[in-house]
Design a protein around this nucleic acid. Structure first.
Lengths: 348, 348
DNA sequence: ATTAGCACTCATTTATATCGAGTGCTAACT
DNA sequence: AGTTAGCACTCGATATAAATGAGTGCTAAT
């Protein structure tokens, strides 16, 4: 069977109404609310066809129709109108992101906040994955007799450090030498590779004292690297779902929140997703737990490189057009913010 | 009216039963389950007295009795038995805290995790408040032509840093001089005071170039300080409340989660609480939102100084004895962990 | 091809009856 | 005096039944 123009129109109307009301929509209501120029009976026939084609489902015999995942997919792929943001939304985004220039994590966190506020859904934002980053230099700074600060800087300017207890006595000179030596060995290597190589001090160690110092420092070095590679996932609007009728069943709400409660697992799932604006609808999600959720993620860039993800999660019934538009605008803004930050800071 | 021995016994029995079952407890049930040696009728009389005295309430005429806040208060103050942890619990705590020595935030986060797992309640843990910390030194490290790393170290070894864009050209020498100068000015001062003093460069600036450098750096310096002073609040077991009958009403659950969703506000409330093990029950909480919650917080120490808080929040009906014991043990362990960390790391 | 008409379905709502755990009171018993 | 058995009464919870109404599918007329 073909998807006639009229069928498409009806389907779009159903989706539009259902997304708004969360109630199965019947032929009568449809003909009343939308000016389709055909009678409920005709609509019923078309609906019946659409159901057969898999675009609609029927909660039970005497209920209206509900769009299926397939319908939403069609909608997202071809029916969905591109929605312009309201000036107010634009302002909100721009203003609030501007506020915390130079505080990376904070900015990301706020992005999630904004997103959940505008969409009324649950949102999340991930700090950049640093798998592509390379080591720029290592520094070791004396603090006191048995404390040293280890500092690792990556090519993107990401810094991480730890204060370490040092067991062996050290001289400032040795420290500097060791730092230089480590920098020399690892400079330009990917952080992940350095970490993976599980190094047993494969940098020059001609001096005995330095060798012992290196032994002392290595575990902390690895740990610091590891920490540096960690991504943070910020969530916001967790309680927004309580406003959605699909989660008025407490058990549904619990399951939803449980899904997000296991942050590590969730983070992993987000990381694995492709770059760019990705929409996965209901059953399209591999995870069973998400089979009646839709997940939209987008990628933002720092200095032009694709790195972090931001997204929303909610019921399959969501305002795809609006949300993707918002996310597009938001990521654009993030990209700019993160370009500005390292670029023309003088404009301030 | 006096609280006779018998009344106490009955009250304790009621609390014990109610805490377990969440069902109003009646005289009949009580006499069956507890060997009080008196008939239901007598119990009824005593209950009636206890109600008059404010220790019990009555959801409705034909329901059993429920302990009031006052009853729990009495229980916590004098009736509550000290509960020994199971060896398994002890092992869990010790093991899981041991795992991440040297990763402060991680440890705190895990402490919250453990706490929620053992208590089946919602838990939280706050990183140390650094209001008492003093500045130890400031360092400025050249990265490239227009990037400099600013690093602030506090007396406790806490480090914070930012990579900054520098507008004016600088020499390594100037940087070092400036860092020394800043260190000299602020060393030993409390971080908060340095931040509050809202300094307009009140350290020596005889050299013109350095002065401009300082202007460039100060905003970031303040921001970094601010960031350093921030406390993090980690939460865990948010969804645990769904297992509690008091939150089977979706609206209650929503309110509870909304309370915790406003993290900043909640953090503020926690910070304000006194040190040590503090239990506030229902109406004792100033915040209306918490009027049917109990909140237990405890303080942990780093190097012997009271600094961070950890706690649980749940319905007033909670196993106070068990939970406070767990928290005592947990904070003890934290204290040790954080002493070890900077002390006898050689034992590894 | 479209539509009006009609019987049928079924979740939801409203009304009603029943149940049972619990109380409070009184009178009898130690 | 304090304790207990007995009993009427209360009231939320549960179960059952009837009424409602939005919606469907089918048929026959347009």
């Amino acid at each position: 069977m073909e998807l006639s123009e009229r069928k498409l129109k009806i389907l779009q109307a159903i989706i539009s109404d259902y997304v708004r009301s969360a109630e199965p929509v019947g032929s009568r209501t449809l003909s009343r609310k939308f000016d389709l120029g055909i009678s409920p009976a005709t609509i019923r026939n078309e609906m019946s066809d659409l159901e057969e084609m898999g675009y609609l489902t029927h909660p039970h015999t005497s209920a209206g129709r509900v769009p299926s995942d397939k319908a939403y997919r069609l909608y997202v792929n071809s029916l969905m109108p591109k929605q312009e943001l309201t000036p107010q939304e634009k302002r909100t985004i721009a203003d609030r992101l501007q506020a915390d220039i130079n505080e990376f994590d904070r900015t990301i966190q706020h992005a999630a906040q904004i997103l959940s506020e505008i969409t009324n859904l649950t949102s999340f934002a991930m700090t950049p994955t640093k798998t592509e980053e390379t080591l720029k230099f290592v520094n070791l700074l004396p603090v006191d007799k048995n404390t040293v600060v280890l500092m690792i800087v990556s090519d993107s300017g990401e810094i991480s450090n730890t204060a370490m207890r040092i067991k062996v006595p050290y001289t400032e000179e040795n420290l500097q030498l060791l730092a230089k030596s480590m920098t020399y060995t690892y400079r330009g290597k990917k952080l992940t590779d350095v970490l993976k190589s599980h190094i047993q001090k494969n940098f020059e160690t001609d001096i005995e004292a330095m060798s012992r110092l290196a032994d002392d420092i290595l575990p902390d070095f690895m740990k610091t690297l590891e920490e540096m590679l960690n991504v943070q996932l910020y969530m916001d609007g967790l309680t927004n779902i309580f406003d959605l009728p699909e989660y008025s069943d407490i058990d549904k709400a619990r399951k939803f929140l449980a899904l997000l409660d296991k942050k590590e697992d969730f983070t992993k799932k987000i990381i694995e997703r492709d770059d760019g604006m990705i929409v996965t609808i209901g059953g399209e999600n591999a995870d069973d737990m998400m089979n009646d959720c839709s997940l939209i993620t987008a990628t933002y860039c720092v200095d032009g490189k694709m790195v972090g993800k931001i997204g929303v999660i909610g019921p399959t019934r969501m305002r795809y057009g609006e949300i993707t538009s918002i996310m597009e605008y938001l990521t654009e803004n993030l990209n700019n913010t993160f370009k500005l930050e390292s670029g023309e800071k003088d404009s301030e």
